[in-house]
Write a protein that binds this DNA or RNA. Sequence first.
DNA 1: GTGAAAGCGCTAACAA
DNA 2: TTGTTAGCGCTTTCAC
Lengths: 341, 341
Amino acid sequence: MTTMSDVAKLAQVSPGIVSRLLNEDETLRIRDETRERVLAAAKELDYTPNFAARALRMSKVGVIGLAVHDASNPVYSEIIEGAQAEATRAGYALMLADVDALATDDRLFKRFMSSGAVDGLLLQRAGTASDSFVTRVASERVPTVLLNDRTTGRIGSVAADDYAAAFLATRHLIGLGHREIGILQVDGVRNRSDRRTRGWRDALKQAGLEARKSQVTMGGHTADQGWQGMHEMLAQPERPTAVFAANVLAAVGAVRACQDARLEVPGGMSIIGLHDVFLAEYLTPRLTVVRLPLFELGAQAVRLLLEQRESGEARHLTLTDPAPVLVVRGSTSPPETRQYA
Amino acid sequence: MTTMSDVAKLAQVSPGIVSRLLNEDETLRIRDETRERVLAAAKELDYTPNFAARALRMSKVGVIGLAVHDASNPVYSEIIEGAQAEATRAGYALMLADVDALATDDRLFKRFMSSGAVDGLLLQRAGTASDSFVTRVASERVPTVLLNDRTTGRIGSVAADDYAAAFLATRHLIGLGHREIGILQVDGVRNRSDRRTRGWRDALKQAGLEARKSQVTMGGHTADQGWQGMHEMLAQPERPTAVFAANVLAAVGAVRACQDARLEVPGGMSIIGLHDVFLAEYLTPRLTVVRLPLFELGAQAVRLLLEQRESGEARHLTLTDPAPVLVVRGSTSPPETRQYA
DNA sequence: GTGAAAGCGCTAACAA
DNA sequence: TTGTTAGCGCTTTCAC
């Protein structure tokens, strides 16, 4: 391993010079000749500063932690990619961890949070018990920003415009001529779920329609839960002709539940999902969705975190630009004119 | 920040003792009384060892790098989860990076590889130009293990039993009565693609069937590429009645391509994919696949890497246990008896 | 059984 | 314009 003194020795200067030059210290006044000599030596030896020594000295590692529940969920992975991209741009590396593992193994958790292994934490909560524990403990130790979530106080947060998205989705169904429109709610983090439900309710209200309790069921975050939620919805006496699923995966399950019940989509039931993912394109029928800027959300979260680290002040952001966009595919249509008996 | 000397001071011992006790040094002979005092002090101060200082002193950080092309691909994410789990078990953290970013920004790359920021690298290649660059440079600096890939020499590798899986998939189609069976190949890493193609060819041969060149097209790693590949396959004069897609996402696209061509699946065309992912369950028809132990692959790769770090010797493994399993769903059936005109 | 001291590789303050 | 030095927090060797 080649160290800074190796470089210094070869260039016949002191280590201090090498350090200041390589770190682009503005106050460094150096002869061109010497500069060249040092640079040449560094190149010759293929020198790279030691990560740990630097971190120790500067109490800063250049790593951002990212704690999620389910990295394989296509919705989250877009956020992750955005965070990845922005972190890289800012010269940081991303370290992925599992929230539940973090909460379970508290030795690992401490090591992760209190040892200076990360300069900050991006946290995606799902409303579980481990979440609140992790949130509390982590935020006491490192700057923390919540992903697609909303808080106040010293924990930062950046949320997508779920309300506008839900509103837009519901408007689409109304525009198609639907009058009885249900919602498959997401579970977990309360505010996230509420924002979506409000969007649905307000759109109905604005159109003079009623938001019926019986047309609200739990769709959750997975296709299985979505199937279950739609299954329950279909059993309601006042069955809707269209449903807004507050999560794509729930929409996927909902489509299947209808098909299993021999109810055609979109003929007998229109379904619109929230969040666009590639697989929406490959279902039968293709899934109509509202697309939210998830990649940007991830990137913005990183920016917020870095800012928060500087200023010590947490901000709470809702990402309204770019706005949600409606992607019409095949799972929504005007309601069939014949009514159920 | 509380340090080890804080603990030592409070317990009225020297830092050396604290270190040895906390690290469970076998050779340490200590009075029970002192031990308790130190432990109590550590607890009282809520002490956690500083990550960077430890890394600097021991030239080991406790972090494994994981470089992938597309973390959102559900196939890879299962591998990632397996690696995550095993790394955690072994007391390591996983650091996710993007292969292409690594190759593009060589400052980042160096920092990542040569600075001691990771103790080893897990690499998922896709056969691109950046891959070979990253592979070569990285393996010169840290222990490296390739994911679902095969090499010789100082780079380790752990592969799933793609051959057996392809064989099994093709056998299934043959068992159903198909005589004309095509394959949608994967692109990228040569050996991976070859193993799958050989499995297909050998199964055909064993059944006395011909592996026709015209029934081999490129299905790639994405649904879009799969669509394209199937589209080409359908244009062949000797169109098969069944196809083995060497990747699930390709299978997804292939199903859609058939439907777009008004060819029913499985009636007019049976399709079987490789790798099981949740969405297979939600397509119409549900996708028949062969399931490979991807989670185990990720876990095994971590074990191999850690071993390789110790011994300095790379191993090359094919994961034959658990064996591939056939998951029959709705996208395969006996061929229609009526033949094409 | 326990303490003292050296040093991992780097940066920053101060001297020269 | 450059050199010297102290010290970040830890582990480990050797001395007592």
